[in-house]
């Protein structure tokens, strides 16, 4: 029953503390989220822990995720990214504020634009090959810069320092890369 529901409906049920809905959400999203978290933390055990933390956050703070106004998929991806990066930084003994509920609300919960286009995981997985084509159509340099920015959470200046290239070059590469993906996806009719 819960498996037939879309992401927003599942979130609504989770909001009403429906554990079956959370289970259905886990079954649906866990492969994508686990793969993404593992790509960031590069450790299976840590990835498991982060994924568990994410679902606990979803269960506890569903109302704060604003899933009705946002894209649920984008919310979950950004939530996982924030949590994974925070876990990684804390594991690397980087000085960070104490992890409290307020800190979680402020820095872990994603802050997305209200006008994020609605998207569902089932649709995304249906168009997976097209999305992959759109991403792989970028140059290797663009792909590398984007991966450093998105998965390794390096700022533009960090990337410039790491690659020993001008900051403006990094900015332009990021800009051009995302614009080209947008165009490619628009051509495929996804966005």
């Amino acid at each position: 029953m819960t498996t037939e529901l879309n992401d927003i409906e599942l979130f609504k049920r989770i909001l009403n503390k429906d554990s079956k809905a959370l289970e259905a959400l886990y079954d649906r999203y866990s492969p994508v989220l686990f793969t993404f978290i593992k790509r960031i933390v590069n450790d299976t055990a840590i990835a498991d822990g982060v994924l568990a933390d994410v679902f606990v956050i979803i269960w506890q703070k569903t109302s704060k995720l604003n899933f009705e106004h946002h894209n649920p998929y984008a919310v979950l991806i950004n939530l996982c990214r924030n949590k994974a990066l925070d876990t990684l930084r804390r594991a690397q003994n980087i000085e960070l504020p104490e992890y409290t509920g307020d800190f979680e609300d402020e820095f872990i919960l994603p802050k997305l634009s209200i006008h994020t286009p609605q998207n569902d995981l089932s649709k995304i997985l249906l168009n997976r090959e097209k999305i992959q084509f759109a991403i792989h159509s970028l140059t290797e340099a663009q792909q590398y810069v984007i991966s450093l920015a998105y998965y390794d959470s390096l700022t533009e200046s960090d990337i410039a320092a790491k690659l020993n290239i001008p900051l403006l070059t990094v900015k332009s590469k990021i800009r051009v890369a995302l614009n080209s993906i947008k165009e490619n996806l628009a051509k495929e009719g996804i966005q």
Binding site: V32, N71, I131, I135, L178
Partner: peptide, 8 residues
């Protein structure tokens, strides 16, 4: 939204 599609 485009950035969130990268993990796919």
């Amino acid at each position: 939204s485009i950035a969130s599609l990268l993990p796919v």
